[in-house]
Design a protein around this nucleic acid. Structure first.
Lengths: 277, 277
DNA sequence: AAAATAGTGTCTATGAGACACTATAGT
DNA sequence: ACTATAGTGTCTCATAGACACTATTTT
């Protein structure tokens, strides 16, 4: 949730006012230093800017049903949209980049570092936040389910099922589910943000090695297929999937085998960056 | 260029200050209205936000050489980066969406409306603008060369050759050329923005009907192939290209033929939205 | 007629999907 | 032995690339 209450005694830092008698417009022949000294960015109204992060995972811990895509959200405790759920987020600080802000939010709100994180889209409808003009630069991050095991111990964040009501890469808003058939209302335009994240991930899955980001370091081909099916929301052809993955040159057999199965154990593979290309 | 000097007598509009004696933090049981009235967004420092637009076209008016990708830029007349070239841009107003800001910039700075416009990426490195913290939400727009014919009469914008130093969808900064082998320095991080636009367009070309946006309403298959080759920076197979395009169901034969050729004239096609899917 | 490009028909290589079959674990 | 999944081999079909050939305009 990008929309925390402000810290109690913080007044906005003002930009230094423009020195009098030196209008920066016109055809002055000043040096760049003089120009910058006389320039007042605050002459233009500025929006507030937050970063919201869609933290996605594929929960394979329920062995009875097919793995599904899940996302992390918090229940808001304050107005506006109190009791609705929101994505982890926060205001951008003036001394950090947008990428750094996304990494900071993941660290502070979920205790996670070193994840795959990518900028998604910037949402800027004028009325998207009733408190005023707030842009949000949305990011999405991918994490294996094993790294979310103790998330509830570290924070008030929870992992919820993602319910995508459209096929392929059509796009549109996406809601979370609290339980079977029980939608979880999302705050602000976060359903749009979540929908954009799912659409982006589906588009990237086929031609970039992004599926590995949702698995532990060593995994079976079946687990990788589960991830692809969870993200795409449909089953994929087993034979073709295996061939494509093995032909891609991004998988390295470990020689180890999957432990503790009640059937033939599958070989474990590891992701390797492609040397060429 | 997103970085104009401020208008002479404009002071920043201040958010209404928070009413005293009603701190919004804590577990107050206020109504949402009361909460919002007491909320001061200015408690967090706010960056300036601009929108920059990469306006791309494929210039096929030079019949002797292969068509190439071109982009619109202005020479900056003020510090910083004076005399370098910049993309059309401007500050986001608080009462307009980001998409509206991009459309307004295209209208005001290039006199163009109704183009294909899509958000690209948001650039927010803390030091990308020496005047202070300025984020820019980059957009790209596509236009047929015939609509840029009188651009120079309407504005100081010029169309420059795009020089992509990488292949495929690798990505990286991209410069403009003033003439053959004569690079045109770009202001700020606009080479990164331009590079991102080329990368995005290349990626979209194969699976979305975006190529038509760079052509007039009626065009030959050869012209469409020229556009694809210009965007991709490499030749494509003629036979396969024709089959793919005709099989896609997005082209409609007009029955008309290309005028004034010194060889067999090709049939003119028109883009039609696919009914199904 | 010559030149130049538009457009068609056909062969081949590649990859996805389908399916049959074998292999190996637990029970 | 039975069951469930892993993994392999082979066939078919769809599509991209290559290439030969025909068609139609201006000069």
């Amino acid at each position: 949730m990008a929309h925390r209450p402000p810290p109690p005694p913080a007044r906005p830092r003002r930009r230094p006012p423009r020195p009098p008698g030196k209008p920066p417009s016109g055809r002055s022949r000043d040096t760049e230093e003089a120009f910058l000294a006389g320039y007042d960015l605050a002459a233009f109204p500025r929006p507030s800017v937050t970063v919201d992060v869609v933290l996605l995972t594929v929960d394979r811990t329920v062995p009875t049903s097919a793995p599904r895509l899940h996302a992390v959200a918090y229940e808001r405790t304050e107005h506006p949209d109190r009791h609705k759920h929101a994505l982890p987020g926060g205001f951008v600080r003036l001394d950090e980049s947008l990428d750094q802000a996304a990494a900071r939010i993941l660290r502070d709100k979920a205790g996670l570092e070193g994840l795959f994180v990518e900028q998604l889209y910037t949402f800027g409808a004028p009325q998207r936040d009733p408190r005023g003009r707030v842009l949000t630069v949305a990011y999405y991050a991918l994490v294996g389910p094993e790294r979310l095991a103790d998330l509830a111990l570290r924070s008030s964040a929870r992992v919820h099922l993602v319910d995508v009501p459209w096929a392929g890469e059509t796009g549109g808003p996406v809601d979370l589910l609290a339980g079977p058939g029980e939608p979880l209302p999302l705050a602000f335009d976060h359903a749009d943000i979540l929908g954009m994240a799912v659409k982006r991930l589906r588009g990237k899955l086929d031609y970039t090695p992004v599926g590995f980001q949702l698995l532990p370091a060593e995994f079976t081909l079946r687990a990788l297929q589960d991830v692809h099916e969870a993200v795409r929301g449909e089953t994929v052809n087993k034979d073709s999937f295996r061939r494509r993955m093995l032909a891609g040159g991004m998988l390295e057999a470990t020689g180890e085998r999957e432990p503790a199965t009640y059937h033939r154990p599958a070989e474990l593979y590891r992701f390797v960056k492609r040397s060429s290309v």
